[in-house]
Amino acid sequence: MSSEQQGESIRCLVAKVGLDGHDRGAHVIARAFRDAGFEVIYSGLHRAPDEIVQAAVQEDVDVLGISILSGAHDTLVPKIMSGLEEYGAKDDTLVLVGGVVPEEDRENLKAEGVSAIFGPGTSIEETIEFVRENAPER
């Protein structure tokens, strides 16, 4: 039973990491998550990995959605995952990556603990359904 089925809202942090200034997709997914009944926090632009980790831990989120289009996913996402692990939050946070991630980089990110990677053209419904089915129970 997901946390939403128990009457609790799924808490999500939608985060923009690094120098990537393209935030339209992050705003679209944040609004879609809100419309789906999730509680959504948006990090704002140009956040450092440690700022994202701090926000995720302090807000006690169930889901961390990292939006990245800069091509720096292979260095920034592992820093976030390492930070979550340092705080003991890696195992109970569903981490998603959205953006342009080449196929050859996806397995490395999943090995770091990323649960799913959603590229361009992924339907919002597919993303919402994935969160509902995989958000950790609290």
Rank of each mutant, 00 (worst) to 15 (best):
V101I: 15
S70F: 04
K16P: 05
P120E: 10
M1H: 13
T122R: 12
P102I: 06
L13H: 10
R31S: 14
G71N: 03
A30L: 01
F130T: 00
D50R: 08
L94E: 02
D62L: 02
Y42F: 14
I52F: 03
A111R: 12
E107L: 14
L109Q: 05
H46L: 13
Q6T: 13
L13V: 11
G99W: 03
N108E: 15
D60N: 13
E125K: 13
E86F: 08
N134A: 00
D35K: 10
G71T: 00
V61D: 04
I66E: 05
P49V: 01
V17N: 06
H46G: 02
S70P: 06
D60H: 11
R11H: 14
L96N: 08
V57N: 01
S43Y: 02
Q5C: 11
R11E: 12
V131K: 00
E51G: 01
A89C: 15
V114S: 07
R132N: 04
P102Y: 07
G25E: 11
V131S: 00
H46S: 06
V61A: 06
Q6F: 13
S67D: 01
V97R: 09
I52D: 08
D50S: 14
D105V: 07
A135D: 03
S123P: 08
I80V: 12
E8W: 12
L76Y: 07
E86Y: 08
T75D: 10
T75F: 10
D62K: 00
G37C: 03
D23V: 04
P136Q: 03
E126G: 11
I66R: 06
E112K: 12
R24M: 09
K110Q: 14
G121L: 07
S2W: 10
G83N: 06
H73A: 10
A135V: 00
T75V: 14
G121D: 07
I10C: 08
G113C: 03
S43K: 01
E126I: 06
A89M: 15
I66C: 05
G119V: 12
A72P: 02
R31D: 13
P49K: 00
V57M: 03
G18A: 07
Q6R: 15
